[in-house]
Design a protein around this nucleic acid. Structure first.
Length: 846
RNA sequence: GCCCCCGUGGCGGAACUGGUAGACGCGCUCGACUCAAAAUCGAGUUCCCAAAAGGAGUGCCGGUUCGAUUCCGGCCGGGGGCACCA
């Protein structure tokens, strides 16, 4: 047996064995219980990065562990292959997006294979393949037929650099998420998916997802943003161009008697109508539109209003008239675009009222004494009872809301309602490299679905990227089609689908991939939902919400009876690295610096380097580490082991040389243990305490490693394995030691699979470790029969003693009092009180 | 501004439902092997005191408890999400 483990040989050898045997091929017909383990599929950007390695290693450990525990495991891999980087590359490098993408896929597939992941490559898919997106087009048309897709003129976020529409989510601080360009507003006809139809379900469904991080559920809850309240109409004192009233929304109908003004958004139809005859108002509206939306600007933005001079009637008292303002802080796209202002109990309204000299009337008081207290600089938003509210006085806020809603409904001027922050999902993109929307526009018939038998609508290859905008728009022939309905000449839709659509159902296609339809329902339902989904927290809202929506939409149209796509969700942390900066501010990559004495210098210049805290690996900071050379040097197992060690998986992991060296040492250490065992050939039981102690340690670690992998606490499982290795190394050769080493190889197998196979084979183990059963922990060996008891005086540890497990309280107390140290501390006086926790401690209160 | 999470050795981090704080790894120190180095192995490593005895100690202040890293209140610091959401 070789003295050292040679990963270059072993990795390739075992990867080939697994592949030849189809070891990780998921059988649809298996009688074993099923387990679907999935990591978020990568965008084929060019090369694998450390984040991928970490993500897929975690999923792989779980997949392999499940296999060893008797599950038929589905662990697939594919490519989220549409998107803008391919078009950017096309423009910069004059290469077709498809060519670029497929070549990236080849590179990255090869890189992933070198890491030895237990993937079922037979199910590999790429979203840019017509055999995938054609089915997506069919699903889109299914949703279209079901009325879940619609088209509307809408103001969109237009990125003037990328020349495309952005979803609200892709606008960050008023700038495009990719280009960073200031986003403009434009009106375009767009396709929308009715995700708001599912708002309630999507919100309610969150409570079932108890294997999701609370954080993610909370983020989705906030994103969906359900608010209960009252929608009611304000009557205008004098009708305006036939409009005699408008609707407002409030979550605080109880404060209606504190109303001081009404306000509408600058985009509100009334404001626009008035502005036509009022240049001052028109100027105000224009100014509001211009206003920046960055965090800093909003923070400092003044609450500004324009008094229209119009008055509205208070709903509870027609004689009570309120001024109507156009206000810059009222948003057209939330609620009804109009509000009533209650300065006493809303901070924004208060600032507005102070500025324009409007009355501030308290209508909620936390205590009877507070009722007379005027409102200062801060609105009162706490609980209390209503005051200054006529017949509502004395009611709690909750009662007040119910009373006002009941009265509004009775008198027919308003109704209790729910509004959502969630908007419908705009899926049109003015891009080439995406799934063509399978619609044909006919002047006579309007938008007509492409007939199913003509799917897929395949992207034309003959396009150029020398001008900005969507090349499909300019395509001479592709756009020209006959209307499927009337046969007249028509134009193909040139928008493509948001790539989030592609990733909203790929996990279903993995589970079932017939040629002639998106998936087979029964087959898909056998695998779904995904048992454990693992990916970055950056997808906590969009991707996960869209996939949940898509799954529910398919359910509603009777295609798949699954409520939630992902039963368990785990969001892993990033892989980070220190940053290095030259004195002149240049970012330096890790291979451009070297240590000198206690510091780092730039190799080329010898200048000292400024070392920054570990940050997400990024091109701009040049602190990325390419996994491939690391795998070349240390092998897949050391890299995998390092990815799992030390840092809890949900937290960031700082990459460093010492860490990978440590992992390499462990790999060699485990190899040595196995090699030595072969050399010993020891098969006799020593029969002493030593054997038994090792056995106990082994079985405790069998239980602990399993529990920790199951909890995805890989860093703890790693620590367990180190502990076991330490114990084995201290033990003399024996049958117990041999048994422990064999078991350890199996326990480590999900993490370091190549090494495990090699060691297993060298020790004469039968079959593949990948097919072996996970060791079983013997309950009889889990518990120690001797326990260490802490002896405290007044809660301070003063001594420890060893006692048989399960010793009675009286015995422990006796033993504690018999301790010499304790006697000294108590100075012979009996304790006032004794607390005994069996098998744990004795606390003597002096 | 609102909501959420996190603060433990030189570092990454352990500590089950309140019960011996610092498992495990990294780094460092000393030692063994070696002509030497690498690799490997052994010992040590929270802080204070020369050491023992002892004392302090889980961001800070306070509380509950026989006992608090763990529970409660208030600060300070770091991170994340949302954001003029009525």
């Amino acid at each position: 047996m070789a003295a050292r483990f040679n990963p270059l040989e072993a990795d390739a050898h075992w990867q080939k064995v697994w592949e030849d045997r189809g070891t990780f091929h998921a059988s649809d017909s298996s009688a074993r219980p099923r387990s679907y383990v999935l990591e978020m599929f990568p965008y084929p950007s060019g090369r694998i990065h450390m984040g991928h390695v970490r993500n897929y290693t975690m999923g792989d450990v779980l997949a392999r562990y499940r296999r060893m525990n008797g599950f038929e495991v589905l662990h697939p891999m594919g490519w989220d292959a549409f998107g803008m980087p391919a078009e950017n590359a096309a423009m910069e490098k004059k290469v077709h997006p498809g060519v670029w993408t497929w070549s990236n896929i080849d590179t990255m597939r090869a890189q992933l294979k070198r890491l030895g992941f237990a993937l079922d490559w037979s199910r590999e898919l790429a979203t840019c393949d017509p055999s995938y997106y054609g089915h997506e087009q069919a699903l889109f048309l299914d949703l279209f037929d079901a009325g879940l897709v619609y088209r509307k003129q809408s103001e969109v976020n237009w990125d003037p650099v990328d020349m495309t529409v952005l979803a609200n989510e892709q606008v960050i601080d008023g700038r495009g998420w990719r280009s960073g360009a200031l986003v403009e507003r434009r009106k375009l006809s767009q396709w929308f998916l009715k995700i708001t139809d599912f708002a309630d379900e999507l919100l309610e469904g969150l409570s079932e997802l108890d294997q999701w991080p609370d954080k993610v559920r909370l983020m989705q809850e906030n994103w969906i943003g359900k608010s209960r309240g009252l929608k009611f109409r304000f009557g205008l004192e004098a009708p305006l161009e036939g409009i005699d009233s408008f609707e407002v929304f409030t979550t605080r109908p109880d404060t209606i008697c504190g109303a001081a003004f009404a306000a509408i958004a600058p985009d509100h139809s009334i404001a626009l109508a008035l502005a036509e005859h009022d240049p001052d108002l028109a100027a105000f509206v224009a100014e509001c539109r211009k206003g920046g939306t960055t965090a800093a600007e909003l923070e400092t933005a003044e609450k500004k209003g324009f008094d229209t001079g119009l008055k509205v009637h208070h709903p509870l008292d027609a004689a009570w008239k309120l001024p109507l303002y156009v206000a810059n802080f009222v948003l057209m796209d939330y609620g009804t675009g109009a509000i009533f202002g209650c300065p006493a109990h809303d901070q924004r309204d208060l600032e507005f009222a102070r500025k324009y000299g409007l009355p501030v009337t308290r209508v909620v008081a936390g205590s009877p004494e507070e009722a007379a207290e005027p409102i200062g600089d801060e609105a009162y938003t706490g609980p209390g009872r209503l005051v200054n509210s006529g017949e509502l006085d004395g009611l709690t806020g909750e009662e007040g809301m119910r009373a006002v809603i009941a009265r509004a409904e009775e008198e027919d001027w308003g109704e209790g309602t729910t509004v959502w922050r969630l908007r419908d999902w705009g899926v049109s993109r003015q891009r080439y490299w995406g799934t063509p929307i399978p619609i044909i526009h006919c002047e006579a018939c309007g938008p007509v679905p492409v007939p199913r038998e003509e799917l897929p609508v395949v992207l034309p290859d003959d396009v150029g990227f020398d001008q900005p905008g969507n090349p499909l728009d300019r395509h001479p022939t592709w756009t020209k089609v006959d209307c499927p309905s009337c046969g007249g000449s028509a134009r193909r839709e040139t928008d493509t689908l948001d790539t989030f659509v592609d990733s909203s159902w790929y996990f279903i296609r993995f589970a079932s991939q017939p040629k002639d339809r998106p998936f087979d329902r029964a087959e898909a339902e056998r695998w779904l939902p995904v048992g454990q989904y693992i990916g970055g927290v950056e997808h906590a809202i969009l991707h996960l919400l869209y996939a949940r929506f898509w799954t529910r939409a398919l359910r509603r149209i009777g295609r798949l009876d699954i409520e939630e796509p992902f039963m368990g969700l785990f969001t892993q942390g990033m892989v980070t690295h220190e940053t290095y900066r030259a004195p002149d501010g240049r970012w330096l990559s890790p291979d451009e610096v070297e240590p000198l004495d206690d510091r780092l210098i730039e190799s080329a210049t010898g200048e000292p380097v400024d070392v920054g805290r570990p940050q997400a690996m990024s091109k701009s900071k040049r602190n990325g580490i390419d996994p491939e050379p690391i795998v070349d040097q240390y092998g897949a197992d050391a890299v995998r082991w390092f990815m799992l060690s030390d840092s809890p998986p949900e937290r960031d992991l700082a990459w460093n040389e010492d860490g990978i060296e440590g992992a390499w040492r462990f790999v060699q250490r485990l190899w040595r243990l196995a090699s030595e065992e072969e050399g010993h050939g020891a098969s006799t039981w020593l029969g002493g305490d030593e054997d038994e102690a090792l056995q106990r340690k082994l079985h405790q670690m069998i239980a602990a490693v399993g529990a920790n992998i199951e909890a995805l606490a890989f860093n703890k499982a790693v620590a367990n394995l180190y502990e076991l290795a330490n114990a084995i190394e201290k033990a003399a050769p024996s049958a117990a030691r041999r048994e422990a080493v064999e078991a350890m190889v199996l326990l480590a197998a999900p993490m370091v699979p190549h090494l495990a196979e090699q060691a297993w084979a060298a020790m004469g183990g039968a079959g593949l470790v990948a097919d072996a059963a996970w060791p079983e922990a013997d309950p009889a060996l889990l518990a120690e029969d001797q326990v260490t008891i802490a002896v405290q005086v007044n809660g301070k540890l003063r001594d420890t003693l060893t006692a048989p497990k399960g010793a009675p309280k009286e015995r422990l107390e006796e033993m504690a009092l018999a301790s010499e140290k304790i006697g000294r501390i108590l100075e012979g006086k009996p304790p006032r009180k004794v607390i005994v926790v069996p098998d744990r401690l004795v606390n003597l209160v002096a």
